[in-house]
Amino acid sequence: MTQMSYMEAIRDGMRVEMKRDSGVYIAGEDVAQFGGCFGVTAGLYDEFGPDRVMNTPISEAVIVGHAVGAAALGLRPIAEIMFVDFMGCCMDELHNQAAKMKYMFGGKAKVPMVVRTPCGAGLGAAAQHSQCLESWFTHIAGVKTVMPGTAADAKGLMIAAIRDDNPVMYIEHKQLLGLTGDVPDGEYVVPLGKADIKREGSDVTIVAWSWMLQKSLAAAEKLAAEGINVEVLDPRTLVPLDKDAILKSVSKTGKLVIVHEEIKTSGFGGEISAIVAEEGFDYLDAPIKRVAAPDTPIPFSPILEQTFIPSEEKIIEAVKALF
């Protein structure tokens, strides 16, 4: 066990797999000597050399598209897209190529690739560099979507994502890069599709991931002081989704609040709500609540951006409304 940041944990996960499997390599904009726009790949170029940590031109379509071809030949590329917002520049390569190749080919291909990309607001980076877009990817059958919310999960999910034989969107949060925690050493794997109860409780279930997990945990502490005992469940991966864990928790608490940083309309909270309404309606003793960003682009001005981002206060308010 080593104490490290979320960013170091992502890097450690990549490092472990690059040492173990020579077919794992990193390609993306400024990932080599520069170490990536946020520094996540720092040092890997020196450690693994120019054949395995490669700068690409500013060419998102071929960054993701070449990963599809290389993965189809059995390599395990980690393609970095500098901001999740830029996925629009290479969406065909993900949703029509990577995601569908196996199925279209009748099962006779596999595409073991990872697209690593940061999401999230809070840096004053405005409308094109701050979004959370996970529902774009969960809506594509054939792609898995991973969103770690702690340092340990960042590592364990990275290793699992690289080892997975499918295209995986690994979405890290810019606000979490400096978050530290105890991270298991060596080949630590967090299986995709397994939720984690980050805080046990009996009165209400909060389902939250990525940055919102941390906000929900903080909110839960404050609510505990007021006598509300919150269970905080982190699905960790949205596809595959551990719906059994969600249903089990709701069966215990009878109440569900879903917190996400995506805008509310067509956000993944809608999907979780529908699952619980369809399969766990009898467990509920109050309406399901969603705390999400409003249906707007992300504003630049700090005062507006802070209003946009779902806050601890809003989470607390939503929980209290159920009692």
Binding site: G124, A127, P297, F300, S301
Partner: peptide
């Protein structure tokens, strides 16, 4: 990021 900016503070430098 002020209200009097070209984009009312919604856009910023970029």
């Amino acid at each position: 990021g002020k209200a009097t900016g070209t984009c009312k503070g919604k856009g910023g430098s970029m």
